[in-house]
Nucleic acid binder design. Structure first.
Lengths: 216, 216
DNA sequence: TAGATTGTTAATCGATTAACAATC
DNA sequence: TAGATTGTTAATCGATTAACAATC
């Protein structure tokens, strides 16, 4: 078992997700190669990735699904969720705030803040607080992660307030760069970057004309 | 000027975004080093990235901001938007569908589809069509990109329909793997992967106790 | 001119892929 | 036993960083 690279870490949820989806069908074991095939990855990569989190693989047999699922969930911290608060309860913010699925991924969204809490409260069942309550409430809730879904021009301010209130990681949906002190992680959910890849693929294919023939 | 790697491509929107934000302040030129400083990147990386899209850099002077902005926008295809359709007009889907900002990024969301179009139509001003109209309408609109915001268990089906209707790239927000024919790009907006990084950072810091002291 | 800044070529680093020994 | 499959060590590949020559 070795240190887990960030590339590997990002793939682990995919494996977990797939193995869980096979739990109800026999057999009760699964091989790295079959995971790889289903997800369009190389079997060598899956094997190596799994080796960083699991020691339950047995030659010739593979992994017992339930054991592997438990190992992955444990490693990814899904069994001990982090509490998080959200700043900016607009359309996107509310959609994320209401989304039930995050608890499965170890994220517990316990509060949302908005500059106009009254308006925002009409959009969601869960409580929305005015922005000025953030410093106090965020500390009291012990939030470890801050989710930023405010417009770009207010994002740095929201970020500063969250860091001040003690969060140790920021999940940033605003299309702007955030500056943070050392030790704080910013994870950008960067839609513009994704769009750049999509749009380049489109224009490349127009230029080149023909699709390439490699398998997916 | 060389071939642009996908890593570089993902960073270009960040540079563009920053340079645009400085357009109103003098001087009217900007250096790679100052972009790097503002975004917390290395100046060598920024210089090399910009070299793949721009030939307007002048030693000692840097880049004329307006020229660089135009070069980046052109390269990223912001001047010739792709048309896209969205499948799954739930909370997240509607939030994306209504978001004005995508046109700035070269994406034109022209239609949305939902299995219950009537319900979804109450959530948005823009038109929502029943799923069964997808094949015909998607073709007629000439959509090049399909955005998937349906629940995981319906995502593959939505994907197949989009591919069938002629889209050449999929922007997938459903937490599941999609299989596509060769030549079709799937870009996963993978929240579970992001959460894995965030949650590992949190638990690492608890374990290790002390923050590290590198600059941001 | 001298100094700042670009663009390119070379060196380093990290991640992916390949090879293979261990083993159920 | 033989074959399938794991986990690890070595080789390759790609991306980042460093060095430096060119130049406004």
């Amino acid at each position: 078992m070795q240190e887990t690279s960030s590339q590997t870490l990002k793939r682990l949820p995919l494996y977990l997700n797939y193995v869980k989806s096979t739990l109800n069908s026999p057999p009760d074991t699964i091989s790295a190669a079959s995971i790889a095939l289903a997800l369009g990855k190389s079997h060598i990569q899956v094997r190596k990735d799994l080796a960083t989190v699991s020691s339950s693989g047995r030659p010739k047999i593979g992994y017992v699904k339930t054991v592997l699922v438990a190992e992955l969930e444990r490693y990814l911290g899904y069994d001990s969720p982090s509490s998080a608060v959200l700043v900016g309860a607009g359309r996107l913010g509310c959609a994320l705030y209401e989304y039930q699925g995050f608890t499965d991924y170890g994220l517990n969204l316990v509060a949302a803040f908005d500059i106009d809490a009254e308006r925002a409260q009409k959009e969601t069942q869960k409580p929305v607080f005015p922005l000025k309550k953030l410093p106090d409430l965020c500390k009291r809730l012990g939030a470890q992660i801050g989710v930023i879904t405010v417009p770009a021009q207010h994002a740095q301010q929201a970020c500063d307030a969250l860091v001040q209130a003690g969060v140790r990681a920021i999940w940033n949906f605003a299309p702007t760069h955030l500056s943070v002190p050392p030790g704080i992680l910013v994870q950008n959910e960067d839609m513009a970057s994704s769009l750049a890849l999509l749009s380049k693929h489109i224009s490349k294919n127009i230029q080149g004309g023909q699709y390439d023939e490699q398998q997916a």
